Simulated scan of single mutants.
Amino acid sequence: MVVSNIESDSFEDKRDLLDDIEDPHELYDGEEINYQPVEELNLKEIVKEEKAKIKTFSFKSIKHGARGSVSLFRILPYIFLILGFIALKNNELLELRFYLPALLLGIVVGSIVSKEAIKN
């Protein structure tokens, strides 16, 4: 088997088993992407090309942002906040020195409950 691999020169194309374990996708093969010296590279052009590849505003990003903004965990506390404020104001029971710490407690409890609900 070894002799046949040497004769067919296929042993040079195969990677070492340790290399396959450490770098299965050949990300760190040591080859440079651009063979030009650093002095000859036009860094401004490279940056412009890379920025052109990045799509910052797409339909997928809009859909992902809209899904998060209409989440039940986000809308429900706002509704509770507004209705609570209106109810207290209408009944002349609104005391901000008591309302704001209680509101903070509700925010903390709501965030803990939402994290547990997401885990399950």
Rank of each mutant, 00 (worst) to 15 (best):
E40P: 15
E49D: 15
F59D: 09
D19M: 08
V70K: 02
E31S: 15
T56D: 05
L96Y: 08
P77H: 13
D13H: 05
V113M: 12
P101K: 09
Q36A: 01
L41S: 11
S61G: 08
L88H: 03
L93S: 15
K115T: 02
L100S: 03
S8H: 02
L100I: 14
H64N: 11
L76A: 13
K14Y: 08
V113S: 08
L18E: 10
L41E: 05
D16Q: 06
A66F: 06
K14S: 03
F85R: 03
E12R: 14
S114D: 08
I46Y: 01
S4M: 07
S114L: 04
N34Q: 07
L27G: 00
F57H: 14
L18G: 03
A102V: 06
I82R: 06
E39I: 04
S4T: 09
A102S: 14
K119S: 15
V108W: 02
F80Y: 11
I33S: 15
R74K: 14
H25Q: 13
S114N: 09
I6N: 06
I54Y: 09
V108P: 00
G68P: 04
K115W: 14
G30T: 05
D19T: 12
E50V: 04
I82N: 00
E40L: 09
P37K: 00
L18V: 14
N91L: 10
A117F: 06
I21H: 04
F98I: 13
K53D: 11
R97L: 05
D23R: 07
L94R: 02
E31R: 03
L83H: 03
N120M: 06
I112H: 03
D9K: 10
L27E: 06
L105M: 13
R15K: 12
A117K: 05
E31D: 08
E7F: 02
P24N: 02
G84K: 01
V2L: 15
N91Q: 12
L83Y: 06
N5G: 10
E50I: 06
L96G: 00
E12K: 12
L100Y: 10
A52N: 08
L96H: 07
E26R: 14
L96K: 02
F80G: 06
I118Q: 04
E50S: 15
A117V: 02
I86N: 02
S8V: 01
F73E: 00
E116C: 04
I75G: 00
V113G: 02
S10H: 11
I107N: 02
H25F: 14
R67W: 10
D9Y: 07
P24F: 03
K14E: 08
A117T: 01
D9T: 05
V47S: 15
L81R: 11
K44F: 01
M1S: 13
R74M: 11
D19P: 00
I82C: 00
V109K: 03
L103F: 10
H64E: 15
V109G: 13
V113Y: 03
E39T: 07
V38K: 04
L27A: 01
D20L: 05
L81I: 11
Y78K: 04
A117M: 13
L105Q: 08
R15Q: 10
L96N: 02
Y78W: 14
G84T: 07
V47E: 11
E39S: 15
L105Y: 00
S10K: 14
P101G: 03
P24E: 03
Q36K: 13
G84R: 04
E22A: 07
S71T: 13
L100K: 05
K89F: 15
S71W: 15
L100G: 01
I86S: 04
I62Q: 07
Q36H: 12
E22M: 11
